[in-house]
Amino acid sequence: MPATLFVSRPAPLSAPLSRTEDAELIPSSCQACRASCGSDWVFADGAGFLVHRTGERCPVAVPFSQETGQPLTTAWTVAA
C-alpha cells in the first residue's frame, strides 16, 4: 500500500536556509591542548593521533591503539 504524504507548508520557503554573506567563521580549538588552531584525528600504522590543522602533532594528546583504544606508551611518529 503506498504511503500518503501530507505537506505542512504548501508554498516553498522565500529565503535560502543558509547565507554565506552573513556567515561568521569561528575558529575551533584543539580538543586536548585548547590551542586555537583546530585539530583532526589521523590514523596511521594502527595508531590514532591528534594532529593540529597546522600539520603538527598535538604535544598534549596521547596516541592510542586503533584496535583496542588503549593509550600507547611507545614513541610514534606520523609519516608525512
Rank of each mutant, 00 (worst) to 15 (best):
P27R: 12
R53F: 07
G48W: 06
D40E: 09
V7M: 14
S8P: 11
L17D: 01
T54N: 07
T20L: 11
Q70C: 05
Q70P: 03
F49A: 02
D22P: 08
A44T: 15
F43V: 12
D22F: 02
F43Q: 13
L5A: 10
A75L: 11
A61D: 01
A61I: 05
A79F: 13
A32T: 07
P63E: 00
L50E: 03
L25S: 06
S39F: 02
F49N: 02
A35W: 04
V78G: 08
T54S: 06
Q31C: 12
D22R: 10
E24T: 09
T54R: 13
T73F: 05
V78Q: 00
T4P: 12
P2E: 08
G55L: 08
T20N: 13
P59E: 02
P71Q: 01
G38E: 05
G55Y: 00
L72H: 04
F6A: 12
F49G: 02
F43D: 08
A75S: 14
S18N: 07
W76H: 11
T54Q: 05
T68V: 01
L5V: 10
V51L: 06
S8T: 08
H52Y: 05
F6Q: 15
V51C: 08
D40I: 08
G55V: 10
E56L: 11
S39L: 08
R19G: 12
Q31L: 09
C37L: 04
S65L: 10
C37H: 03
